[in-house]
Design a protein around this nucleic acid. Structure first.
Length: 481
DNA sequence: ATGTAC
Protein backbone atom coordinates (compact mmCIF):
# COMPACT_ATOMS: atom_id res chain seq x y z
CA UNK A 1 0.00 0.00 0.00
CA UNK A 2 2.83 2.39 0.87
CA UNK A 3 5.06 1.04 -1.89
CA UNK A 4 5.95 4.31 -3.63
CA UNK A 5 6.33 6.24 -0.40
CA UNK A 6 9.51 5.89 1.62
CA UNK A 7 9.12 5.43 5.33
CA UNK A 8 11.58 7.71 7.14
CA UNK A 9 10.39 6.90 10.66
CA UNK A 10 7.30 5.57 12.42
CA UNK A 11 5.33 8.72 11.61
CA UNK A 12 7.17 10.35 8.70
CA UNK A 13 7.01 9.49 5.02
CA UNK A 14 8.83 10.77 1.97
CA UNK A 15 7.24 11.25 -1.44
CA UNK A 16 10.39 10.86 -3.57
CA UNK A 17 10.97 13.14 -6.54
CA UNK A 18 10.74 10.01 -8.69
CA UNK A 19 7.03 9.87 -7.76
CA UNK A 20 6.21 12.25 -10.57
CA UNK A 21 8.47 13.83 -13.20
CA UNK A 22 8.82 17.54 -12.54
CA UNK A 23 8.97 17.45 -8.75
CA UNK A 24 11.66 19.90 -7.65
CA UNK A 25 11.84 18.63 -4.06
CA UNK A 26 10.41 15.63 -2.20
CA UNK A 27 7.18 15.64 -0.21
CA UNK A 28 7.33 14.96 3.51
CA UNK A 29 4.18 13.67 5.21
CA UNK A 30 3.70 13.41 8.98
CA UNK A 31 1.18 10.63 9.54
CA UNK A 32 0.44 7.31 11.14
CA UNK A 33 -0.35 4.46 8.73
CA UNK A 34 -4.06 4.97 9.33
CA UNK A 35 -3.93 8.71 8.67
CA UNK A 36 -1.73 8.22 5.60
CA UNK A 37 -4.24 5.77 4.18
CA UNK A 38 -6.95 8.43 4.44
CA UNK A 39 -4.67 10.99 2.75
CA UNK A 40 -4.14 8.63 -0.17
CA UNK A 41 -7.84 7.87 -0.51
CA UNK A 42 -8.76 11.47 -1.19
CA UNK A 43 -5.72 12.09 -3.42
CA UNK A 44 -4.18 14.60 -1.04
CA UNK A 45 -0.82 12.86 -1.52
CA UNK A 46 -0.99 13.73 -5.24
CA UNK A 47 -1.45 17.33 -4.18
CA UNK A 48 1.62 17.17 -1.90
CA UNK A 49 3.60 16.06 -4.95
CA UNK A 50 2.03 18.76 -7.17
CA UNK A 51 3.04 21.52 -4.74
CA UNK A 52 6.68 20.48 -5.09
CA UNK A 53 6.60 21.69 -8.72
CA UNK A 54 6.40 25.35 -7.60
CA UNK A 55 9.30 27.53 -8.76
CA UNK A 56 11.60 28.43 -5.87
CA UNK A 57 10.25 25.74 -3.52
CA UNK A 58 12.65 25.23 -0.61
CA UNK A 59 13.52 21.89 1.06
CA UNK A 60 10.24 19.99 0.62
CA UNK A 61 6.46 20.09 0.27
CA UNK A 62 5.15 19.24 3.74
CA UNK A 63 1.90 17.69 4.93
CA UNK A 64 0.67 17.66 8.50
CA UNK A 65 -1.23 14.58 9.83
CA UNK A 66 -4.62 16.30 9.35
CA UNK A 67 -4.00 16.60 5.60
CA UNK A 68 -6.97 16.32 3.24
CA UNK A 69 -7.86 17.36 -0.29
CA UNK A 70 -8.14 21.10 -0.97
CA UNK A 71 -8.16 23.64 -3.80
CA UNK A 72 -4.86 22.87 -5.59
CA UNK A 73 -2.86 22.58 -2.39
CA UNK A 74 -3.82 20.09 0.32
CA UNK A 75 -5.36 21.41 3.52
CA UNK A 76 -2.76 20.61 6.16
CA UNK A 77 0.02 21.61 3.77
CA UNK A 78 3.10 23.76 4.33
CA UNK A 79 5.40 25.04 1.62
CA UNK A 80 8.19 27.62 1.76
CA UNK A 81 9.37 29.46 -1.35
CA UNK A 82 12.49 31.53 -1.82
CA UNK A 83 11.63 35.24 -1.75
CA UNK A 84 14.02 36.04 -4.63
CA UNK A 85 13.31 33.15 -7.00
CA UNK A 86 10.06 31.75 -5.61
CA UNK A 87 6.34 32.20 -6.14
CA UNK A 88 3.36 33.02 -3.96
CA UNK A 89 0.01 31.31 -4.51
CA UNK A 90 -3.52 32.11 -3.25
CA UNK A 91 -4.32 28.38 -3.35
CA UNK A 92 -1.50 27.83 -0.86
CA UNK A 93 -3.29 30.06 1.66
CA UNK A 94 -6.88 29.05 1.03
CA UNK A 95 -10.18 30.84 0.60
CA UNK A 96 -10.63 31.73 4.25
CA UNK A 97 -7.54 33.91 4.59
CA UNK A 98 -6.38 33.97 8.25
CA UNK A 99 -8.90 31.49 9.43
CA UNK A 100 -7.66 30.94 12.95
CA UNK A 101 -8.28 30.14 16.57
CA UNK A 102 -8.04 31.99 19.87
CA UNK A 103 -8.44 30.77 23.41
CA UNK A 104 -9.80 32.90 26.25
CA UNK A 105 -8.94 31.73 29.74
CA UNK A 106 -11.03 32.16 32.90
CA UNK A 107 -10.46 31.73 36.63
CA UNK A 108 -13.69 29.72 36.76
CA UNK A 109 -13.97 26.01 37.40
CA UNK A 110 -16.17 24.19 34.89
CA UNK A 111 -17.96 22.26 37.64
CA UNK A 112 -18.94 25.53 39.35
CA UNK A 113 -20.70 26.88 36.28
CA UNK A 114 -22.50 23.74 35.09
CA UNK A 115 -25.89 25.11 36.10
CA UNK A 116 -25.26 28.30 34.09
CA UNK A 117 -24.04 26.53 30.97
CA UNK A 118 -27.27 26.59 29.01
CA UNK A 119 -27.74 30.24 29.88
CA UNK A 120 -24.24 31.08 28.66
CA UNK A 121 -24.76 29.33 25.32
CA UNK A 122 -28.11 31.08 24.79
CA UNK A 123 -26.55 34.41 25.69
CA UNK A 124 -23.72 33.81 23.21
CA UNK A 125 -26.26 32.88 20.52
CA UNK A 126 -28.16 36.10 21.22
CA UNK A 127 -25.03 38.24 21.21
CA UNK A 128 -23.04 36.84 18.27
CA UNK A 129 -24.17 37.00 14.62
CA UNK A 130 -23.57 33.61 13.05
CA UNK A 131 -24.10 31.57 9.90
CA UNK A 132 -23.21 31.87 6.23
CA UNK A 133 -24.05 35.32 4.98
CA UNK A 134 -24.57 36.67 8.49
CA UNK A 135 -24.47 40.42 8.80
CA UNK A 136 -22.91 42.09 11.77
CA UNK A 137 -24.05 44.45 14.46
CA UNK A 138 -21.26 46.71 13.27
CA UNK A 139 -21.43 48.56 9.98
CA UNK A 140 -18.55 50.71 8.83
CA UNK A 141 -17.99 53.00 5.89
CA UNK A 142 -15.36 52.46 3.24
CA UNK A 143 -12.75 54.74 4.81
CA UNK A 144 -13.12 52.99 8.15
CA UNK A 145 -12.74 49.59 6.52
CA UNK A 146 -9.48 50.77 4.94
CA UNK A 147 -8.23 51.72 8.41
CA UNK A 148 -9.42 48.39 9.83
CA UNK A 149 -7.51 46.42 7.19
CA UNK A 150 -4.31 48.39 7.80
CA UNK A 151 -4.47 48.52 11.61
CA UNK A 152 -5.71 44.98 12.38
CA UNK A 153 -6.72 44.03 15.92
CA UNK A 154 -5.74 47.47 17.29
CA UNK A 155 -8.68 48.87 15.29
CA UNK A 156 -11.05 46.75 17.35
CA UNK A 157 -9.50 47.83 20.65
CA UNK A 158 -9.54 51.50 19.62
CA UNK A 159 -13.26 51.17 18.90
CA UNK A 160 -14.05 49.61 22.27
CA UNK A 161 -13.95 45.93 21.38
CA UNK A 162 -11.32 44.03 23.34
CA UNK A 163 -8.49 44.90 25.73
CA UNK A 164 -5.17 46.60 24.90
CA UNK A 165 -3.29 43.67 26.49
CA UNK A 166 -4.90 41.28 23.97
CA UNK A 167 -2.73 42.68 21.19
CA UNK A 168 0.58 41.19 22.26
CA UNK A 169 -1.15 37.80 22.60
CA UNK A 170 -2.07 37.64 18.92
CA UNK A 171 0.16 36.23 16.17
CA UNK A 172 1.87 39.21 14.44
CA UNK A 173 0.40 41.32 17.28
CA UNK A 174 -2.82 41.26 15.29
CA UNK A 175 -1.42 43.24 12.37
CA UNK A 176 0.35 41.79 9.34
CA UNK A 177 2.62 44.42 7.77
CA UNK A 178 2.19 45.34 4.14
CA UNK A 179 -1.60 45.62 3.89
CA UNK A 180 -2.62 47.92 1.03
CA UNK A 181 -6.36 48.64 0.87
CA UNK A 182 -6.05 49.78 -2.76
CA UNK A 183 -5.22 46.17 -3.71
CA UNK A 184 -8.59 44.69 -2.73
CA UNK A 185 -11.60 44.89 -5.04
CA UNK A 186 -14.79 46.90 -4.62
CA UNK A 187 -16.62 43.65 -3.94
CA UNK A 188 -14.38 43.07 -0.93
CA UNK A 189 -15.61 46.38 0.50
CA UNK A 190 -19.22 45.52 -0.34
CA UNK A 191 -18.97 42.19 1.43
CA UNK A 192 -16.87 43.33 4.37
CA UNK A 193 -18.42 46.56 5.57
CA UNK A 194 -21.18 44.85 7.55
CA UNK A 195 -19.34 41.68 8.57
CA UNK A 196 -16.88 42.66 11.33
CA UNK A 197 -17.77 40.61 14.40
CA UNK A 198 -19.58 37.72 12.71
CA UNK A 199 -18.86 34.07 13.36
CA UNK A 200 -19.58 32.64 9.92
CA UNK A 201 -20.65 29.10 9.12
CA UNK A 202 -19.22 25.66 8.58
CA UNK A 203 -16.70 24.62 11.18
CA UNK A 204 -16.50 28.06 12.75
CA UNK A 205 -17.60 28.10 16.35
CA UNK A 206 -17.48 29.53 19.82
CA UNK A 207 -17.03 26.68 22.27
CA UNK A 208 -17.15 26.58 26.06
CA UNK A 209 -14.59 24.00 27.14
CA UNK A 210 -13.17 22.41 30.27
CA UNK A 211 -9.47 21.61 30.63
CA UNK A 212 -9.65 17.87 31.32
CA UNK A 213 -6.02 16.84 31.12
CA UNK A 214 -2.68 18.56 31.61
CA UNK A 215 0.26 16.80 29.95
CA UNK A 216 2.97 19.35 30.69
CA UNK A 217 2.57 21.02 34.08
CA UNK A 218 5.47 23.40 33.59
CA UNK A 219 4.30 24.80 30.27
CA UNK A 220 0.66 24.79 31.37
CA UNK A 221 1.76 26.89 34.33
CA UNK A 222 3.39 29.45 32.06
CA UNK A 223 0.28 29.48 29.84
CA UNK A 224 -2.01 29.84 32.89
CA UNK A 225 -3.90 26.60 32.26
CA UNK A 226 -5.03 24.13 34.94
CA UNK A 227 -7.19 21.05 35.21
CA UNK A 228 -10.91 21.74 35.64
CA UNK A 229 -10.58 25.27 34.23
CA UNK A 230 -13.30 26.77 32.05
CA UNK A 231 -11.92 28.18 28.78
CA UNK A 232 -13.51 29.52 25.61
CA UNK A 233 -12.27 28.71 22.11
CA UNK A 234 -13.16 30.93 19.15
CA UNK A 235 -12.64 29.65 15.60
CA UNK A 236 -13.39 32.08 12.77
CA UNK A 237 -11.81 33.84 9.83
CA UNK A 238 -12.05 36.73 7.40
CA UNK A 239 -15.58 35.90 6.16
CA UNK A 240 -16.51 37.27 2.74
CA UNK A 241 -13.39 39.48 2.63
CA UNK A 242 -10.92 36.60 2.44
CA UNK A 243 -13.10 34.57 0.14
CA UNK A 244 -13.51 37.44 -2.31
CA UNK A 245 -9.80 38.33 -2.16
CA UNK A 246 -8.81 34.74 -2.87
CA UNK A 247 -11.28 34.50 -5.76
CA UNK A 248 -10.08 37.80 -7.25
CA UNK A 249 -6.41 36.82 -7.13
CA UNK A 250 -6.94 33.28 -8.43
CA UNK A 251 -7.98 35.01 -11.66
CA UNK A 252 -4.96 37.33 -11.55
CA UNK A 253 -2.61 34.38 -11.03
CA UNK A 254 -4.26 32.39 -13.79
CA UNK A 255 -3.32 35.16 -16.22
CA UNK A 256 0.16 35.50 -14.70
CA UNK A 257 0.88 31.78 -15.13
CA UNK A 258 0.05 32.07 -18.83
CA UNK A 259 1.85 35.35 -19.51
CA UNK A 260 4.99 34.37 -17.59
CA UNK A 261 5.01 30.78 -18.84
CA UNK A 262 5.09 29.21 -15.37
CA UNK A 263 4.88 25.43 -15.54
CA UNK A 264 2.54 23.85 -12.97
CA UNK A 265 0.81 20.45 -13.00
CA UNK A 266 -2.59 21.77 -11.86
CA UNK A 267 -4.28 25.05 -12.82
CA UNK A 268 -5.34 25.45 -9.18
CA UNK A 269 -1.71 26.02 -8.21
CA UNK A 270 -1.89 29.43 -9.92
CA UNK A 271 0.95 31.63 -8.66
CA UNK A 272 3.34 34.43 -9.53
CA UNK A 273 6.86 35.36 -8.42
CA UNK A 274 6.76 36.98 -4.98
CA UNK A 275 8.56 40.03 -6.36
CA UNK A 276 6.34 40.39 -9.46
CA UNK A 277 3.52 42.96 -9.53
CA UNK A 278 0.94 40.15 -9.27
CA UNK A 279 2.79 38.56 -6.36
CA UNK A 280 3.21 41.81 -4.45
CA UNK A 281 -0.40 42.82 -5.09
CA UNK A 282 -1.69 39.50 -3.79
CA UNK A 283 0.44 39.76 -0.65
CA UNK A 284 -0.82 43.31 0.03
CA UNK A 285 -4.44 42.22 -0.48
CA UNK A 286 -3.98 39.04 1.55
CA UNK A 287 -2.58 41.12 4.42
CA UNK A 288 -5.80 43.20 4.34
CA UNK A 289 -7.88 40.04 4.76
CA UNK A 290 -5.49 38.75 7.44
CA UNK A 291 -6.01 41.93 9.44
CA UNK A 292 -9.77 41.80 8.88
CA UNK A 293 -9.82 38.31 10.45
CA UNK A 294 -7.79 39.50 13.46
CA UNK A 295 -10.35 42.26 13.99
CA UNK A 296 -13.18 39.77 13.60
CA UNK A 297 -11.86 37.44 16.30
CA UNK A 298 -11.08 40.38 18.60
CA UNK A 299 -14.70 41.60 18.35
CA UNK A 300 -16.07 38.07 18.84
CA UNK A 301 -13.93 37.75 21.99
CA UNK A 302 -15.36 41.05 23.24
CA UNK A 303 -18.88 39.71 22.85
CA UNK A 304 -17.95 36.47 24.59
CA UNK A 305 -16.65 38.51 27.55
CA UNK A 306 -19.79 40.64 27.48
CA UNK A 307 -22.00 37.52 27.47
CA UNK A 308 -20.18 36.11 30.50
CA UNK A 309 -20.52 39.44 32.29
CA UNK A 310 -24.28 39.36 31.79
CA UNK A 311 -24.69 35.77 32.95
CA UNK A 312 -22.41 36.03 35.99
CA UNK A 313 -23.00 39.68 36.80
CA UNK A 314 -19.23 40.15 37.23
CA UNK A 315 -16.61 41.92 35.15
CA UNK A 316 -14.67 39.89 32.57
CA UNK A 317 -11.45 41.14 34.20
CA UNK A 318 -12.50 39.78 37.59
CA UNK A 319 -13.23 36.40 35.93
CA UNK A 320 -9.71 36.35 34.47
CA UNK A 321 -10.88 36.26 30.87
CA UNK A 322 -7.43 36.88 29.39
CA UNK A 323 -6.38 35.86 25.93
CA UNK A 324 -3.94 32.93 25.92
CA UNK A 325 -3.13 33.38 22.23
CA UNK A 326 -4.61 33.86 18.77
CA UNK A 327 -3.14 31.75 15.95
CA UNK A 328 -3.59 31.80 12.17
CA UNK A 329 -3.89 28.59 10.19
CA UNK A 330 -4.43 29.93 6.64
CA UNK A 331 -1.72 32.41 5.77
CA UNK A 332 1.48 33.12 3.83
CA UNK A 333 4.27 35.02 5.58
CA UNK A 334 7.81 36.11 4.93
CA UNK A 335 9.96 34.50 7.60
CA UNK A 336 13.64 33.84 8.21
CA UNK A 337 14.53 30.17 8.60
CA UNK A 338 17.77 28.23 8.76
CA UNK A 339 18.03 26.10 5.62
CA UNK A 340 21.06 23.80 5.25
CA UNK A 341 22.83 25.78 7.96
CA UNK A 342 22.19 29.19 6.42
CA UNK A 343 19.59 31.85 7.26
CA UNK A 344 17.20 32.40 4.36
CA UNK A 345 14.14 34.54 3.83
CA UNK A 346 11.26 32.45 2.59
CA UNK A 347 7.54 32.82 2.04
CA UNK A 348 5.92 30.17 4.24
CA UNK A 349 2.46 29.15 3.03
CA UNK A 350 0.49 27.51 5.80
CA UNK A 351 -2.86 26.19 4.60
CA UNK A 352 -4.58 24.37 7.39
CA UNK A 353 -1.35 24.43 9.36
CA UNK A 354 -0.39 26.38 12.48
CA UNK A 355 2.79 28.26 13.25
CA UNK A 356 4.66 26.42 16.02
CA UNK A 357 7.67 28.61 16.83
CA UNK A 358 9.86 27.18 19.53
CA UNK A 359 11.59 28.60 22.63
CA UNK A 360 13.69 31.73 22.27
CA UNK A 361 11.97 33.09 19.18
CA UNK A 362 11.67 36.87 19.42
CA UNK A 363 8.50 36.90 17.30
CA UNK A 364 6.49 35.27 20.07
CA UNK A 365 5.28 37.12 23.19
CA UNK A 366 7.93 37.49 25.94
CA UNK A 367 6.02 35.34 28.47
CA UNK A 368 6.19 32.38 26.07
CA UNK A 369 9.82 32.72 24.99
CA UNK A 370 11.01 30.19 27.56
CA UNK A 371 8.47 27.58 26.45
CA UNK A 372 7.64 28.14 22.78
CA UNK A 373 4.40 29.57 21.46
CA UNK A 374 0.95 28.20 22.31
CA UNK A 375 -0.55 26.20 19.42
CA UNK A 376 -4.33 25.84 19.43
CA UNK A 377 -5.80 22.74 17.81
CA UNK A 378 -9.58 22.51 17.68
CA UNK A 379 -11.15 19.06 17.37
CA UNK A 380 -14.66 18.33 16.19
CA UNK A 381 -17.54 19.45 18.39
CA UNK A 382 -18.07 16.04 19.98
CA UNK A 383 -14.57 15.21 21.07
CA UNK A 384 -11.68 17.29 22.32
CA UNK A 385 -9.37 20.16 21.53
CA UNK A 386 -5.71 20.58 22.40
CA UNK A 387 -3.24 23.22 23.43
CA UNK A 388 0.22 22.33 22.17
CA UNK A 389 3.52 24.19 22.34
CA UNK A 390 5.90 25.07 19.50
CA UNK A 391 9.33 23.39 19.40
CA UNK A 392 12.89 23.68 18.12
CA UNK A 393 12.10 20.56 16.11
CA UNK A 394 9.37 22.38 14.20
CA UNK A 395 11.86 25.18 13.46
CA UNK A 396 14.36 22.76 11.95
CA UNK A 397 11.92 20.39 10.22
CA UNK A 398 8.70 22.11 9.11
CA UNK A 399 9.50 25.84 8.85
CA UNK A 400 8.01 26.18 12.34
CA UNK A 401 4.68 24.54 11.57
CA UNK A 402 2.34 21.88 12.90
CA UNK A 403 -1.23 20.60 12.46
CA UNK A 404 -4.37 22.75 12.70
CA UNK A 405 -7.21 20.42 13.66
CA UNK A 406 -8.91 17.13 13.07
CA UNK A 407 -9.18 17.38 9.29
CA UNK A 408 -12.08 16.01 7.29
CA UNK A 409 -12.58 12.38 6.36
CA UNK A 410 -16.03 12.90 4.83
CA UNK A 411 -16.82 15.53 2.23
CA UNK A 412 -19.56 17.99 3.13
CA UNK A 413 -21.95 16.34 0.67
CA UNK A 414 -21.19 12.86 2.02
CA UNK A 415 -21.81 14.02 5.58
CA UNK A 416 -25.09 15.66 4.60
CA UNK A 417 -26.31 12.39 3.10
CA UNK A 418 -25.26 10.17 5.97
CA UNK A 419 -25.95 12.24 9.06
CA UNK A 420 -29.20 13.70 10.37
CA UNK A 421 -28.69 17.03 12.12
CA UNK A 422 -31.42 16.64 14.73
CA UNK A 423 -30.20 13.19 15.75
CA UNK A 424 -26.69 14.55 15.98
CA UNK A 425 -27.82 17.45 18.16
CA UNK A 426 -29.70 15.20 20.59
CA UNK A 427 -26.82 12.74 20.64
CA UNK A 428 -24.41 15.51 21.64
CA UNK A 429 -26.83 16.87 24.23
CA UNK A 430 -27.28 13.41 25.75
CA UNK A 431 -23.52 13.58 26.36
CA UNK A 432 -23.91 16.92 28.13
CA UNK A 433 -22.81 19.15 25.24
CA UNK A 434 -25.23 22.03 24.66
CA UNK A 435 -25.41 22.89 20.95
CA UNK A 436 -26.95 25.87 19.22
CA UNK A 437 -26.54 25.99 15.44
CA UNK A 438 -27.36 28.83 13.10
CA UNK A 439 -28.11 26.35 10.36
CA UNK A 440 -29.20 22.78 11.12
CA UNK A 441 -28.42 21.63 7.58
CA UNK A 442 -24.81 22.72 8.02
CA UNK A 443 -24.55 21.04 11.41
CA UNK A 444 -24.50 17.56 9.82
CA UNK A 445 -21.49 18.58 7.74
CA UNK A 446 -19.65 19.24 10.98
CA UNK A 447 -20.53 15.94 12.67
CA UNK A 448 -17.71 14.21 14.58
CA UNK A 449 -17.99 11.30 12.12
CA UNK A 450 -17.04 13.66 9.27
CA UNK A 451 -13.68 14.31 10.90
CA UNK A 452 -10.54 12.39 11.73
CA UNK A 453 -9.79 11.69 15.37
CA UNK A 454 -8.00 14.83 16.58
CA UNK A 455 -6.22 12.83 19.26
CA UNK A 456 -4.52 10.68 16.60
CA UNK A 457 -3.51 13.81 14.68
CA UNK A 458 -2.05 15.39 17.82
CA UNK A 459 -0.27 12.16 18.77
CA UNK A 460 1.67 12.22 15.48
CA UNK A 461 2.74 15.83 16.08
CA UNK A 462 3.73 15.04 19.65
CA UNK A 463 5.65 11.87 18.81
CA UNK A 464 7.52 13.48 15.92
CA UNK A 465 8.12 16.53 18.11
CA UNK A 466 6.88 19.23 15.69
CA UNK A 467 4.81 20.44 18.67
CA UNK A 468 4.13 18.78 22.01
CA UNK A 469 1.03 18.32 24.15
CA UNK A 470 0.29 20.78 26.94
CA UNK A 471 -3.41 20.33 27.71
CA UNK A 472 -6.60 18.76 26.43
CA UNK A 473 -10.07 20.22 26.67
CA UNK A 474 -13.58 18.82 26.23
CA UNK A 475 -16.56 20.74 24.89
CA UNK A 476 -19.39 21.75 27.25
CA UNK A 477 -21.32 24.09 24.99
CA UNK A 478 -21.07 24.95 21.31
CA UNK A 479 -22.29 27.86 19.24
CA UNK A 480 -22.05 26.87 15.59
CA UNK A 481 -22.43 29.03 12.51
C1' DA B 1 -14.56 28.33 3.84
C1' DT B 2 -18.37 31.15 0.86
C1' DG B 3 -24.28 36.51 -0.51
C1' DT B 4 -22.49 27.34 -1.73
C1' DA B 5 -23.26 30.62 -9.38
C1' DC B 6 -20.76 34.58 -13.64
Amino acid sequence: MFDVLERISKYTWRVPTSYRAGMRVPGIIYASEGLLLKAREDRAVEQVANVSFLPGVVSASYAMPDIHWGYGFPIGGVVATDIEKGVISPGGVGFDINCGVRLLKTDLLAKEVESKLEKIVYELARNIPKGVGSRGRIKINRKEMERLMVDGAAWAVKNGYGWPEDIEHIEEKGRLEGADPSKVSERVYERGQDQPGTLGGGNHFVEIQEVVEVFDEKVAGVFGLFSGQLVIMIHSGSRGVGHQTCSDYIKVMDRAVRSLGISIPDRQLGCAPIKSKEGRDYYSAMACAVNYAFVNREILAHWVRESFERVFNKSAKSMGMNLLYDVCHNIAKIEEHIVDGKARNVCVHRKGATRAFGPGNTLIPPPYRTTGQPVLVPGDMGSASYVLVGTARAMSETFGSTCHGAGRVMSRSQAKKRIRSHELKSDLESRGIKVIAGNMALLAEEAPAAYKDVSQVVEVCHETGISTKVAKTRPLGVLKG
